[in-house]
Design a protein around this nucleic acid. Structure first.
Lengths: 155, 155
DNA sequence: ATGGGAATGGGAATCATTTTCATTAAGGGT
DNA sequence: ACCCTTAATGAAAATGATTCCCATTCCCAT
């Protein structure tokens, strides 16, 4: 748990500078338990470095997504959400999105089975469409246990 | 290919009215070969019924999504895109999204294998998280054959 | 320490989507 | 076919996330 965070290495020789704002944003993301919006990142970072602006958050998060350090998600609530991609302690997972309240549940169940199938699918699609696949998104939409009852009352 | 379009039946006794704008928008979507944005739908519909406003397009498309007649997608280009969901002639498919040019390729390969796995996954997730799953999205991101070479030149 | 390109931040600008509200039109009951 | 109730509509304004602009600041190789 000591020494520089793992992402420092990713900034070596790639032409980008590891600045205070970038490091701070990565720190916030690494501590976040959930998928943060740009504004949420801004508020969190602002507590430690009040000088960091929202514009920088957008730019940084975009850069990091380009570097593959963070994943950008859209859960249909009108704003993008970001999550550290790899790194220690993070497991590949997919999402369950509630259409009622917007809650997002990460799940890792069946990931192994999915992974196997996706590996095959990716290989075949890459070949067939001459497409270089870099990542994938899987999301299930529906109603969480709190919103299910509400929906039933409507009828 | 004659008689009223299949979706007319879906407006019976559901409390919603089948109006000219709604029918026109459904017609546009049924003829569209690709995923249209609200604005694209607006332009297409506008050619036939110039009185129909963009607001109505948004409202309608939202309603139709709620009814399950259309699917709403986000391919990361800053606007939502819509596609008729079921109906004759449409097959369940997933998407390949190019990060370079934004092109979207529909594919149906492996859908059967995926379907089987997803059926199991959905059942298990529903139970474990007490979640009512209504739909899913699968998207692969990467570079299409045109954008792959460009990317390589950057290095 | 210094010069130059990279990075930043604040405010204005952009652009998709939503809200408001006065007007219009579906479609069931007659 | 004609009302009548109420859902649906459209134009304009509002909203809200994200991006642009540009003067200033920062990093780092020399």
């Amino acid at each position: 748990m000591h020494g520089p965070p793992w992402w420092h290495g990713r900034f070596r020789g790639c032409g980008y500078r590891l600045t205070i704002p970038r490091d701070a944003i990565l720190n916030v993301l690494s501590k976040a338990s959930k998928h943060l919006s740009a504004e949420e990142i801004y508020f969190a970072v602002h507590k430690i470095y009040p000088a960091i602006g929202l514009t920088t958050v957008y730019r940084t998060v975009d850069l990091l997504a380009g570097m593959g350090l963070v994943h950008k998600f859209d859960f249909g609530d009108g704003r993008s959400r970001y999550e550290l991609s790899k790194g220690p302690g993070s497991i590949h997972h997919h999402h369950l999105v509630c259409r009622g309240c917007g809650r997002v549940i990460d799940y890792t169940d069946f990931i192994d089975e999915e992974a196997e199938l996706f590996k095959q699918t990716e290989a075949a699609l890459s070949k067939k469409y001459n497409f270089k696949i870099k990542s994938h998104r899987v999301q299930f939409y529906g109603l969480c246990e709190k919103c299910k009852p509400k929906e039933e009352n409507k009828e």
